[in-house]
Design a protein around this nucleic acid. Structure first.
Lengths: 162, 162
DNA sequence: GACAGTAAGCTAACGTTGTTAGCCTGTCAA
DNA sequence: TTGACAGGCTAACAACGTTAGCTTACTGTC
């Protein structure tokens, strides 16, 4: 395992366990028993760490969705659950410009493949993805009234696409 | 006009003209011809400025959508256009936790009213909002392939809800 | 075995951010 | 006249990403 991968491991677990505001260069370094400036011997900067985590997020998200097979509602239920339980990685995966300069196109394609397969056309695939993303994003930002029945909202959202 | 409102005016125009990274306390103060610490005589902190702008964003967004009347596709076209031309305010309006402690519930209700009116039920209203938000958010984050026909995507997205 | 090169750590420091403490000054009411 | 207070100010703090420059230990070559 390269030192860069170790850094990504630490960064990932920090992001998962303590959230985005804990992902600082000094904190990552501390967790590795070194000082922040030493990280720059292995990594160009924080952007690169985030790009690495974006790639990981896309991969792990794809494998998390895979078991849902071709059932649209099942896929979307998993999408929602994964996003809500991994908010830091989800944010990196979806709310940052895709680092096409760093991440192989195959990773992007794999992440999209399952939805594209059930969607019937690229435009519907984008719509389904956007719908799931929008619902998750608004839920995470506490935008729906407290106590709203979001399970029912998800059903109502996707049934028009059956 | 209170000094707080002046601050919000400056903050808003800074956000609109130069984007989120220009919205700093020092920059706002500079634009007013004073020093950053003096802002705290009128405002508790940056969070409060952002809460104020969130309220303004919700109001101005509602009035921007109003002329579209009850035509779903027209409303959504305006939603998209407003969001893309006001990314800073849009982010405040949708991607931050709603500051219910600062913003009157009536403002939230007014912002949602138009979509609720055409949706047919709260669950469908949430779905429509999420769909528009997701599409906009992904477009802003450059997540669709360059050159994608997003007009067609928007049509494909909303026709199942007609 | 001596020596050069390099990998990988370190401290000190810089500029930027939001924010606080404490001071000064002008206005205005009692 | 005096005292309160509104609203400026400078200095400074902690946290952030990052850079410069130093040291140390290993590694391969003559």
């Amino acid at each position: 395992m390269t030192r860069r991968e170790e850094i990504l491991d630490v960064a990932e677990s920090l992001l998962e366990s303590e959230g985005a505001q804990a992902l600082t260069m000094r904190r990552v370094a501390q967790e590795m028993g070194i000082r922040a400036p030493s990280l720059y011997k292995h990594v160009p900067g924080k952007d690169d760490i985030e790009a690495g985590l974006q790639e990981r997020a896309l991969r792990v998200m794809a494998t998390a969705l895979a078991p849902a097979g071709t059932d649209l509602l099942a896929i979307m239920a998993r999408y929602r659950e994964w996003a809500l339980t991994h908010p830091g990685l989800y944010e990196l995966a979806t709310r940052r410009p895709l680092r096409r300069d760093v991440i192989p196109a195959s990773v992007e394609a794999a992440a999209a493949a399952q939805i594209v397969a059930v969607a019937g056309g690229e435009h519907r695939a984008r719509a389904l993805w956007a719908l799931a993303h929008g619902l998750v994003d608004l839920e995470m930002a506490d935008r729906f009234p407290p106590g709203a029945d979001l399970d029912e909202t998800w059903r109502a959202a996707f049934t028009p696409f059956r």
